[in-house]
Design a protein around this nucleic acid. Structure first.
Lengths: 208, 208
DNA sequence: CATAAAACAATCCGATCGGTCGCACTTTTT
DNA sequence: AAAAAGTGCGACCGATCGGATTGTTTTATG
């Protein structure tokens, strides 16, 4: 990256995508408009078209950016924990921490976008589906590792457990915003903790 | 309802709201527009304004209508089952059946709308939150009845169990659409069945 | 039969949408 | 020094949005 022109463009792009991900959790990925994005960034709308020629390109870029952000904020810290059930638990906790951090007004980019595109086939839906697939693949891989390490019951179904853990995280997103009185995060933690301890021959590995 | 004028209006209203709920699961509750709704119904846009003067009024009416629909399609059939853990299980199953029926392209009006309005305070969000509250209240009441009947462990936390059951149903909505290969409904059924059997002194009440 | 009310339709409005075009600025390349 | 490439801006276009206005058809009631 020696070219100053490209470096400048890259800076603008990431700044715009940061704002785009935030905006998408407020107005939706379809409600994400060049107008609003330009206004929030203090740049001209046509300047944004230099980076993404259509709205769909912008949406796809936003999905990729949100996935990179998720990897950075949730997955990477969890990978610092030792393989097995503790890493699985860390993944769940970091996800809940990210949701409750308030960094994204909507709590979770993917929860919102995936629901929004449930009935909208097309490239954006495909990209979202691929991201969801990778997320489940990661969960299932970590679960399988835990089984192989003897930290989870050999009869554990990785797909089943992955479904459950992800469901608890997703529910925490909208329940926390629509029912602030209910202690959702406690429920999401308790559900996962209870489940993992029940499946683990070494439940002491998971201290609350 | 002897007045033919009012009767005609009532018919038009319910027909419009039926279409509005469907349309909202495709385009979102915010993407629900008078233009599209009028076109789909084959009526004029201004005709719709006679029933709902603003978009917000239409959205609120759609939420109410969707809740009535949900009560009719999910809650009422489940209430035919005997009080206790079987009624709780029936509620879960009827919800999954409704999601997989394909009657709503998006699978579930509330899942989509609640996520959409997570970061949009206002009357619509309040209405959605109230509906979610009533849903959880119903779940918790039926859980409490099951505990009182001795069909669930006395130590059962109704709020916790309600959170988990609802989470599994919600996740089934978007997982079924974005990952058709994964057998989501089986996962959602297995998760609930496993949980309820583990909490019940009479697990034989729940046959798969 | 006349009148009032409710249900609908046709038309128009300002704002915003996604998108295009031409021009200016900056940095690299020749 | 000049050409080329990447970036950014302002003005503009057609379409659609939510909404208001005005008028027409249907139906009940005096």
């Amino acid at each position: 990256m020696i070219d100053g022109r490209l470096a400048r463009g890259e800076r603008s792009r990431t700044a715009a995508l940061d704002a785009a991900v935030v905006l998408a959790t407020e107005s939706g990925l379809e409600g994400l408009s060049f107008n609003q994005l330009a206004e929030r960034l203090g740049v001209s709308k046509s300047g944004l078209f230099a980076h993404w020629r259509t709205k769909e390109e912008l949406q796809l870029a936003a999905v990729d950016h949100a996935e990179a952000r998720f990897t950075e904020r949730v997955v990477r810290p969890a990978l610092h924990r030792p393989r097995g059930v503790r890493r699985l638990w860390a993944l769940h906790e970091h996800r809940l921490a990210d949701i409750s951090s308030g960094d994204l007004p909507g709590g979770c980019f993917f929860g919102l976008a995936q629901f929004e595109f449930v009935a909208r086939p097309g490239p954006v839906q495909a990209r979202l589906a691929a991201a969801l697939e990778r997320w489940h693949a990661l969960l299932e891989r970590i679960i399988t590792e835990a089984v192989e390490l003897g930290e989870l019951d050999p009869g554990t179904d990785p797909q089943q457990l992955s479904f459950e853990l992800n469901a608890h995280g997703t529910a925490a997103v909208y329940e926390s915003r629509l029912r602030p009185a209910s202690n959702v995060y406690e429920h999401a933690r308790a559900a996962a903790l209870d489940r993992l301890r029940g499946l683990s021959p070494q439940p002491h590995l998971l201290e609350a």
